[in-house]
Simulated assay, not measured.
Amino acid sequence: MHPTEKVVRQFHESWDLRDPERGAAVIAEDCDFEDIARGEKLPGKQAYKADYNRWREAFPDGLCKVENVIVSQCGEWATVEFRNTGTHTGVLRSSLGDFQPTGRRAEVRYCSVMRVRDGKVVEGRDYYDSVTIVRQLGLME
Results as ranks from 00 to 15, higher is better:
V66T: 14
C111D: 08
T87G: 01
V116S: 03
K45I: 05
C31E: 09
A47S: 01
R135A: 01
E141W: 08
Q10A: 07
N84D: 13
A25C: 09
Q73F: 10
K120M: 13
D98H: 07
V71L: 08
R117E: 15
G86P: 12
K6I: 14
Q100E: 15
N84P: 03
W77V: 06
F33G: 00
G62C: 05
M114G: 05
I133H: 04
T87Q: 06
G62R: 03
R54N: 13
P20M: 08
A25K: 08
G138K: 05
T87D: 11
V66H: 10
V121P: 15
G39I: 03
K49R: 14
R115H: 12
D51H: 08
C64I: 10
F99G: 01
F99R: 00
L17R: 15
E5T: 06
C31G: 07
A78L: 02
F99P: 11
R83E: 11
V66G: 04
L139A: 02
V8S: 03
L17D: 14
Q136H: 09
F82L: 13
A47K: 01
M1G: 12
Y127Q: 01
V7G: 03
L17S: 13
W55L: 12
G75P: 12
R135K: 14
G138I: 06
C111E: 11
T132W: 10
Y127D: 08
D16G: 06
F11K: 01
G62T: 06
C111Q: 13
P43A: 00
A28L: 06
W15R: 05
D51E: 14
V134K: 05
M140C: 07
R54M: 14
Y127K: 04
P60M: 01
R135H: 07
R38D: 11
D118V: 05
G44C: 01
V122I: 15
D61L: 00
C64G: 04
Y128H: 10
